[in-house]
Amino acid sequence: MFYHKFRAKDISLLIDGRLEDKRALLLEEHLHSCSRCQHTLESFKKLTNAMGHLQRLNAPVGLAQNIQTKINTKKTLKNPFSRFNLIYIPMSALGVAIAVIILISNTYEPLHKPYKEVAIMSTEEHTIQSKAKAKNDYKQTETSAPPMPAITKPFIRILPISPNQDTDKTVNGVGSLSKGLRTAKLAPETNTSDNLDKTLLSSANRLITKAGGQTIAVNTESDTTIYIDIKIQYSNIQTLAASLSNIGSINNSIPITKGNSEVVTLRIELYYK
């Protein structure tokens, strides 16, 4: 919207006295000769004049009172100790009481614990009493259940042995094999017990029998390993290995080759690392 050299915006600014002095002089000069710009100036002047003379309305009656009432209501709600606020006080008092009770119950420790009764006795009496106490403590230790060892699974190795090998002789320098079931300690000592060995052996024997094997000899004399020599059908070895994996971790890949005979002799080593 151009009016020759001047925009309508310049005329709007001229009305407000906000046009630069130099430009204002030029515009005023221009206005003498330009009816279009004169008309724009007149229309803007009329508009601002009408706007400036719009009726000034008075605030509605009661507005001040409404505001004051609202302020008073706000003040009452904000002030918990206001005598008008009958619900707020019991509620806040109840809250404080609950908080105090919780705090006390969590932190309370009797400051003065009840004194222990101390018997006054002679040295002799004291010695007798001490001995009796020691005896009692010892009994308690004896009768109380032994601590349960941590159950760890043994490792299992299945090795082929020669069918002609004398199973009663020393094998791998571990010790002599003997028939029958005996118990021995297994390492680590803290983790084992005789009961545990028996359980382990009986489990192993049960699984061997179930897989169609036959126990030839058992050696439990070693502190670390139980040796079980067995005879088993070649076809049943995999079944046996699968069964034994329930009681321990099989630690080798069973390098057994089929010989002339269908029955093979194996040594099962149960050991803890």
């Binding site: 919207m1 309508a8 915006k9 709007s12 600014l13 407000d16 906000r18 229309s43 803007f44 009329k46 508009l47 601002t48 009408a50 706007m51």
Partner: peptide, 20 residues
Amino acid sequence: IKSRLFRARVRLRKKLEASL
């Protein structure tokens, strides 16, 4: 402010041309 005021005045002038 200058530009908003000018635009407002132009709009108002257009709307009120007949009644002013």
